[in-house]
Design a binder for these strands. Structure first.
Length: 513
RNA sequence: GGCCCGUUCGUCUAGUCAGGUCAGGACGUCAGGUUUUCAUCCUGGUAACAGGGGUUCGAAUCCCCUACGGGCUACCA
């Protein structure tokens, strides 16, 4: 399987099933996907479940469902399969042991028998002296490992089944220089690095070993991941050269920051500020705590993807609305920024508004129909569709439709008395009663007729149109909002309009002094 | 503390690599217009090169320092 020459690009998204994927992770997946499609390469989903202790039931299913919803597709991976299966690291366990031993044989790694408690103790001691304990060249010869211990003792320990880890032996006194597609040249001195554990005492590899081995074996050409991995890039570079492998190209994405204050976006921010940080709703299997998702909040996945694409990347033109296909065409890593982006919920809403306005009416009608059904309201689809047409422009989400249109489906049970104070004159009830009679008498009950009648009536009464329409709106809607009033009348129908005038007049008379 | 990365309107950003338009756009916000209400919509305004040194005829752009912000610093990923 090794060293098959390949010219196509291969990228992977490699989440760890330790909880729900937040939008930063979705963006990383998205950028990988866009890069793969832009370059005509392959997109791979690998699950990095090498930490048994942090495994969270349902997390893997959540991740795949989220990516599915976002429209991110995989050419290879845990579900899609592929020539490099298996794609779940826990199913590749034996592979890592083999490569750890190869490093051991090459003298680039060593066994370490230090108990976790011993190391913890050393860290505490160092802290008290205001130092930081690092397992590095300066101390490794004094610790319990195969570099310091006599050979026979090492063999004895191994034979007796003593727990051990395998650590990477960081070369001394070298300056490492490497390239990042987004950041350019980065240099680090090996003296600042520590001998990271590659292989744990439970028989599993750490992230560092597993990701380098798998990326090599799976012929990954570009590693596109979050900036939090930048500090371990030197180790990974050393690992590739330790194995004598060709390195993939690296691109470290900037982080997504909180909307206000400092620090990276966290789950708490969403709860506190009232916007989702997860693609779909997540229920914590241990605490039962629910975190809201974009999907449930009423976002279109296309809007979320568009918003995420522009959070850190830009096309260099003034275009802001992109379909997935357009993103495939335009995306490039060269146009990803270096600095962290603050997440802006207001702009996220704006994106959704745009997609809402442009969404086919049929789809909106269907979605809104569902919401109505949950409220026990059933109306014929044509009626719902007409309502949708009237409220879509004034909404950001389908979930807003109800607050914008409930009066189309039910008679108000209360009327806004603040508006009464402002718009209600002494003659208003009389005016409304007289207009009620006009309604009763008028011909075809259609918007244009209603409007004409209202105008004629107002003129004849010597009143402004507003003096009639505002109170009438209050009667029908319950407050002062909503679309064209003549249209509302038509949709409600003659009987209902008259009934609402009557009810409103009774209510208002009873509730004002 | 150490190491690494970053810094243009309130926010996302263009412009930086190849120094030379009143630093452009979008979201937000404010004002005006449209209107029977509230929105939408249209028009206009607001607002930024973190600071200091250099280099240069000329610096947001190149170099250095400082400040601030972030990430990492586990037998987590």
């Amino acid at each position: 399987m090794e060293n098959i020459p390949t010219s196509e690009t291969r990228v992977r998204f490699a989440p760890s099933p330790t909880g729900p994927l937040h939008i930063g992770g979705v963006r990383t997946a998205l950028y990988n996907y866009l890069f793969a499609r832009h370059t005509g390469g392959k997109m791979i989903l690998r699950i990095e479940d090498t930490d048994k202790n942090r495994f969270v039931p349902g997390a893997e299913e959540y991740i795949t469902a989220s990516l599915e919803w976002a429209g991110i597709r995989f050419d290879e991976g845990i579900h899609a399969g592929g020539p490099f299966a298996p794609y779940r690291q826990s199913d590749r366990k034996e592979i890592y042991r083999h490569y750890a031993e190869e490093l051991l044989a090459r003298g680039q790694a060593y066994y370490a028998f230090d108990a976790p408690e011993e190391l913890e103790q050393k860290r505490k001691e160092a802290e008290q002296e205001k130092r930081v304990f690092t397992y590095d060249a300066s101390v490794r010869v004094h610790l319990k490992n195969s570099l310091a211990l006599p050979e026979d003792e090492v063999q004895q320990l191994l034979k007796s089944g003593s727990p051990f880890v395998i650590r990477f032996k960081i070369p001394e006194n070298e300056t490492l220089v490497f390239q990042d597609i987004i950041r350019g040249e980065i240099s680090v001195h090996t003296a600042t690095l520590d001998d990271k554990v590659l292989f744990k005492s439970d028989g599993m590899p750490t992230y560092h070993l597993a990701n380098v081995v798998d990326d090599h074996l799976m012929e990954i050409t570009h590693v596109i991941r979050g900036e939090e991995w930048l500090p371990s890039l030197p180790l990974h570079v050393l690992l590739y050269s330790g194995f004598g492998w060709e390195m993939p190209l690296f691109a470290h994405l900037p982080l997504i920051l909180k909307p206000e204050g400092t620090g990276k976006l966290s789950k708490r921010d969403g709860d506190r500020l009232g916007f989702p940080v997860f693609p779909i709703e997540w229920k914590d299997p241990f605490t039962g705590e629910i975190s809201s998702g974009y999907r449930e909040a009423g976002y279109f996945s296309e809007a979320m993807v568009n918003m995420l694409a522009l959070l850190g990347w830009n096309p260099g033109t003034e275009q802001e609305i992109f379909s997935m296909d357009e993103l495939f065409r335009e995306f490039s890593l060269e146009r990803v920024g270096k600095s962290g982006s603050r997440f802006d919920p207001a702009k996220a809403r704006w994106f959704n508004h745009h997609y809402l306005v442009n969404c086919p009416t049929g789809e909106l009608t269907q979605r809104f129909g569902k919401i109505l059904a949950e409220k026990g309201i059933r109306r014929n689809p044509d009626y719902i569709e007409r309502v949708v047409e009237l409220v879509r422009e004034r909404s950001d989400f389908v979930n807003d439709f109800w607050t914008q249109s409930h009066f189309f489906f039910e008679t108000p049970s209360a009327w806004d008395l603040d508006t009464v104070r402002k718009k209600w004159k002494e003659e208003t009830p009389g005016l409304l009663r007289a207009f009620r009679d006009v309604i009763l008498e008028m011909g075809e009950f259609r918007a244009e007729n209603i409007k004409a009648e209202a105008e004629a009536f107002a003129r004849q009464q010597g009143a402004g149109l507003g003096q009639l329409m505002s109170p009438l709106r209050l009667c029908l809607v319950g407050a002062t909002f909503g679309p064209d009033l003549a249209l509302i009348c038509e949709m409600l129908g003659r009987e209902e309009v008259m009934a609402r005038i009557d009810k409103a007049l009774v209510y208002i008379a009873a509730n004002t002094v």
